[in-house]
Simulated scan of single mutants.
Amino acid sequence: MPKKQQSVEELEKAEEEIVFLEKEELAHFLKLAYTDGLEMDHLVFTVLSYTGLRIGELLSLKWGDFNEKQGTIRVTKTLYNPNNHFEKYQLLTPKTKGSVRTIRIDEMLINMLKKHRLKQNEIKLKNRLVYQDNGFIFAREDGHPQLRKVVETRLKRLLKKAEIEKNITPHSFRHTHTSLLIEAGVGIKEIQQRLGHTDINTTMNIYAHMTANMEEKASQQFSKLMKDLLL
């Protein structure tokens, strides 16, 4: 591991271009992930877009972090696997205290995770001779956590099918989630807690960018409306 590793907060602050999917684009993408996605694609991208989890946080999730009765996911760790080797990974504690959090999820996600657990139990039984059961939710067919590179490759495949030309990465779903929270009228403090930002300025920077984007979109829609009325 590098001696000086940037924290997730520093990486997010340094990110110049905030790319995200509009609501309609997200709906189209997730529908395609359901009809044309490979194993776990639909679940992975739905959870990312509905929770705002970082990709490392998502891949480190274990069944013990999912509370079905309370409808929550507990975030306490992140997966570190710079070489994308299925066995050579580390589970690290998050870089900031704010990253340790409990996220509420809706009924749809709860049901998706329950169905996934049943399917995973079938895979465990089928592959019992090679399955390394460490309790990962997003496990490969051998029980090891899914690789980030696989998620990125699957994402590119689906974006191409969906004819979305934006430079979308797994992190973009975090920004997409933020934009939907803003659109839903959720307050900045609640957004900060949900995303796990210790520094409110990190949230404010993203919030300001998203709000400017929405204001520009509203202005364009208004101009189009007036143009249509005046024709």
Rank of each mutant, 00 (worst) to 15 (best):
Y131C: 08
K114G: 02
W63K: 09
V47K: 00
W63A: 03
E57S: 07
K189N: 04
D65R: 07
L159Q: 09
T96F: 00
I110F: 02
R54H: 04
V19W: 00
V151H: 01
D106I: 04
I206W: 00
E12F: 06
L159E: 06
L26K: 10
H177E: 13
I200S: 06
A218K: 13
R128I: 12
K115A: 11
L43P: 11
V151L: 09
H28N: 13
V44H: 03
L180D: 07
I73P: 08
M204G: 05
E183A: 13
P2F: 06
L59N: 05
I103R: 11
L181G: 08
Q5I: 15
N67T: 07
L92E: 08
E215G: 03
G56Q: 05
I18N: 01
K23Q: 14
Q120M: 01
R54Q: 06
T78G: 09
T102I: 13
E183Q: 14
F86R: 11
D133Y: 02
S60V: 01
L26P: 12
T96K: 06
T35I: 13
H177M: 11
V150Q: 13
V186I: 13
L113D: 09
S172F: 02
Q6C: 11
K124R: 13
R74Y: 12
K189Q: 02
E17W: 04
R194T: 04
L225Y: 09
A212Y: 08
L21S: 00
H175F: 04
Y207L: 13
K3W: 12
A27D: 12
L26T: 02
Q132R: 14
R117D: 07
M226I: 14
L11A: 14
I191P: 01
L58V: 05
L113H: 06
I206V: 09
M214F: 07
Y89F: 00
H171W: 10
I168M: 03
E10Q: 11
L92R: 10
M214Q: 09
L32P: 02
K4D: 15
V44W: 00
A212M: 08
S99G: 13
R104N: 15
L158H: 08
T93A: 14
N84G: 01
I105V: 12
H42M: 10
I191D: 03
E24Y: 03
H116N: 08
E25H: 06
R194Q: 09
D106N: 11
L159H: 06
N213L: 14
I103K: 12
N84Y: 00
V150S: 15
Y89A: 00
K13H: 08
Q193T: 13
T211I: 15
D142F: 03
E163I: 09
S49A: 13
F222G: 04
P94K: 04
R194N: 06
D106M: 02
E141G: 00
N167Y: 10
H116M: 06
H177S: 12
W63L: 10
T203L: 06
A14I: 10
R128C: 05
R148K: 12
M210D: 03
L231T: 15
V150W: 11
T169Y: 00
V19K: 03
V47D: 03
I105H: 05
Y207H: 07
N205D: 12
T202C: 01
G37V: 05
E216V: 12
L38G: 15
G56A: 04
H171F: 11
A27K: 10
P2A: 12
K13N: 06
E190N: 14
P82D: 02
A184R: 03
T198W: 04
M40L: 14
E10A: 05
